[in-house]
Amino acid sequence: MNEIDITSKKSLFRFNLKEVWNYRDLVLLLVKRDFVTNYKQTILGPLWFFLQPLFTTLIFTFLFGRMGKLPTDGIPPMLFYLCSITFWNYFAECFKKNSTTFVDNQSVFGKVYFPRLVLPISVSISNLIRLAIQFGLFLIVYGYFIIFKGAKIPLNPYIMLLPINIILLGFLGLGIGIIISSMTIKYRDLRFIMDFVIQLWMYATVIFPVSSYPIKFRWMADFNPLIPILETTKLGLLGQGTFSLHSYVICVIVTFISLIIGILMFNSTEQNFMDIV
């Protein structure tokens, strides 16, 4: 028989991954719910999965590529931006959605217990499926460029890092997201700040390739863990990008530290957040 102990002091490190596993059916149903309800009562329906990144890419291509003439490492601007945006979106969506976990779900959390970590996990998984769909769009556009514009498929070993890059993006979005979610409960100001942070972060990540940084400022890229991920991804897929082992290692370390801190904070918040929220 399983025993449950409820105490006032919950050990910081006692989180029960087995319990989360017991609720795996809930994770899957929540993912399904996200998909079924997302585009209900829209005319274009799931087509929006494609249209969102496509519009952003067109705007960026026009603004930064055509008008601003910003460098894109010699990659056609459209491909460059679409690739960056597809992967950036995965991170940003995980981050944004997870950073409001507690506030968004308080009506459910206030009435029934289940391991709260189930929700951020389901958010990350449904965004992963979105990424897969949008990656399909990228491949179609890429195919067009290869056939009609003579773009070459690069063959280099960095493509092998793609799955790891996707995992890193997901973990980073999850980790930072739940850190913020644990803090937003009390300090709601963070929710508004987050909008700006995400926008700024996007410009700092998506627009400039590292190769266009003046050598003196290359070190700044180490402070943005997304840059090594996106650079390596572009290097693997499009053949242009900057790979630096030490930046990549820093980024991996930062990702795991934020994930661990996130889970610990989330864990210590979940018990009493209903009194504060």
């Binding site: 409820i6 105490t7 919950k10």
Partner: peptide, 29 residues
């Protein structure tokens, strides 16, 4: 709420021997 683990106690403890289902509301979620 404390017994159904929606919120924690400020002090003290509870031992529950078995699976708990709580119905603080119908149709949660």
């Amino acid at each position: 709420k404390i017994l159904s683990r929606v919120t924690g106690p400020t002090s003290g403890s509870v031992k529950l021997r078995g699976r708990v289902a709580s119905l603080l509301e119908v149709g949660t979620g």
